[in-house]
């Protein structure tokens, strides 16, 4: 009896997405704190409660929400690469999003059957997700959770907190990740904006911070 040629099995897009947004995907995410290192060094955030409030602020009123909108519009084919780069409020935040986006694109291009061009991180993720035919409703909440989880990990190292505290914060913020993702899915670019002024200031002050573990 002749052996049938193996039929390539299509990969479940959920598995692909999880791998792209996992801490093991080599974007260097672990080296960026988004200004958190300064907020902790200057005593603004001192415990798990403060960290959770700050992250909720990023989701509701800050860069996490804006980035989700940039990602969503990218997945619809809008070119927001210049806008995403121009929105950086400081040198380190600019480098944070551009270097992660570049590293993300390089790994995608080395492993996927399609290629994307380098851009700020949410734009690069949006381009890859669009090329892979993923649904925005699947991508956006997981993207937000990955960004928040990475910053929780930074908080665990810096405050410091226990791993269980970190998971407690993530669990508490998961509904918000879903809410903001749903909002971002349809929000026009005009809806982008931040009220996290002291977070921008913290990222600028990080440049002059005496002792630094993180690159932002």
């Amino acid at each position: 009896m002749a052996m049938a040629a193996p039929i390539p099995m299509p990969t479940d897009p959920a598995l692909t997405l999880h791998s792209w947004l996992s801490p093991a995907f080599p974007t260097g995410a672990f080296s960026w704190s988004h200004g958190l290192e300064t907020l902790i060094a200057e005593g603004t955030i001192t415990n798990a409660d403060g960290l959770e409030q700050w992250l909720a602020g990023l989701l509701r009123y800050g860069s996490a929400r804006s980035d989700a909108i940039l990602l969503a519009r990218t997945m619809e084919g809008e070119d927001v690469a210049d806008l995403a780069a121009a929105l950086a409020p400081s040198r380190e935040r600019y480098t944070e999003t551009m270097e992660q986006g570049a590293a993300f694109a390089r790994t995608i291009n080395a492993t996927q059957p399609f290629t994307i061009s380098e851009a700020a991180y949410p734009v690069a993720v949006g381009r890859a997700a669009m090329a892979a035919g993923m649904a925005p409703a699947m991508v956006l909440p997981l993207y937000l959770q990955a960004v928040i989880a990475n910053l929780i990990h930074a908080g665990i190292r810096l405050i410091p907190l226990g791993q269980t505290d970190g998971q407690r914060i993530l669990t508490a913020l998961q509904p918000l990740c879903s809410d903001i993702a749903a909002e971002a899915e349809t929000a026009p670019l005009d809806e982008i904006g931040t009220a996290m002024v002291l977070t921008d200031i913290a990222s600028a002050r990080h440049e002059a911070l005496y002792s630094r573990i993180f690159r932002s």
């Binding site: 800050g62 982008i192 002291l198």
Partner: peptide
Amino acid sequence: ALRLPPEMRALDLPGAL
């Protein structure tokens, strides 16, 4: 892009104002 929350007390969050 500044976008203040409708309820100004949200600005009391750490990292906001």
